[in-house]
Design a protein around this nucleic acid. Structure first.
Lengths: 193, 193
DNA sequence: CTATAACAAACGAACGTTTGTTTAGAGTGA
DNA sequence: TCACTCTAAACAAACGTTCGTTTGTTATAG
């Protein structure tokens, strides 16, 4: 019988929250997953809300890290955008529980915590906006686009992935990233590239 | 003090579910909103789950109706697609509670009810897929596109609207529909039309 | 018209269960 | 010994739901 760490509990909670939602999960459910009593969780964590914050914070950190990487390594607006898309897909699929909880359960935080998460989300969105503005200025992106709206569209597509994508299906993660990037760049009506 | 009807209760429940989620809503909450006791709701409805089904069914019906309208009135693939987009926006904004609950709370239905709702959702998605295939065959949409994936992308953008769009903001609903249609058709990289 | 029966809507109290959380104590490794 | 992890039992509050009863309206028969 190995003892449990705080991280074990946060991971397990993330999985539950992602599947059943925050309100659909009880401390006893979490305990069952871990093989301990629900009350034993209080040896590691202050309470249920604190668990949600921890999971959501993890999710936010993954996205922030991915954005920094794309900005650092990208050469030019479109290349950075492509990296942002691929990185976002990686986060959603590699850290599905945290990402899903981060995307879905923020409304159930109280004001202060929600504010800080929404700020993080805005900062992440701003990276997309910045790259698109850069592309418009440089001519690689059409000037008719509204950078803010376009960023929202791209993020909408990205955030929806975990609701339908099946990693064991016909489409690899790389193919998905390529297809999405093509769609975002050229839309439906014309040929690729 | 006017008496309440079953429809009043479903509408009110929809609003609560949309804001606090199914599990975040108690029968007493619903009663408070309506100015009656939680227990009094059982004079109108069999139980809490039945309320959720009623709300979600309404949402599904709105989307199905919108799709039928677009198919009937649309002339050509791109025109139909434009109508589908505008119609979806109208449903999301005119019936925000039902739409949001329909999109978010389906996992909390039990198997039979969830199955029927997912079928409805698939049928709605198929309308988008069909229109895109029609456009590919007719040449108005590039043959490089995967119809199913493209439909998912478009629906992802549409379904996210209610999470960010503010009707009292700078952007009218019609401008949003136009901008979205342009983005979907031409993407970021080229000029409009 | 009026008396009465029927009805739906709402109340208020209680049910059994589950919730998040607290407390006291036992077991264990450093 | 000490800190940490977990059990076991208990707590008050909130949960969905049921119950018998009261209320106001509507329909009907005299």
């Amino acid at each position: 019988m190995t003892r449990l760490t705080r991280d074990d509990i946060i991971s397990s909670a993330g999985r539950r929250f992602a599947t059943y939602g925050y309100h659909g999960t009880s401390m006893r459910d979490l305990g069952d997953d871990l093989g301990i009593l629900g009350s034993s969780i209080y040896a590691h964590v202050g309470g249920k809300q604190e668990l949600l914050i921890a999971v959501v914070d993890r999710g936010a950190a993954f996205f922030a890290e991915s954005a920094q990487l794309a900005k650092r390594d990208g050469s030019g607006a479109l290349d950075t955008l492509q990296r942002l898309i691929a990185g976002h897909i990686d986060v959603v699929l590699d850290h599905r529980s945290e990402a899903r909880t981060y995307l879905a359960e923020v409304p159930f935080l109280d004001d202060a915590d929600r504010r800080s998460i929404l700020d993080a989300r805005d900062a992440y969105e701003d990276v997309f906006v910045g790259v698109i503005e850069e592309g418009i200025d440089g001519g690689s992106i059409g000037a008719h686009n509204d950078a803010r709206l376009s960023a929202i569209y791209v993020l909408s597509i990205l955030n929806a992935i975990d609701r339908w994508y099946d990693e064991s299906g016909r489409l690899t993660r790389e193919e998905l990233a390529t297809d999405m990037y093509t769609f975002v760049c050229t839309g439906l009506c014309r040929g690729p590239r």
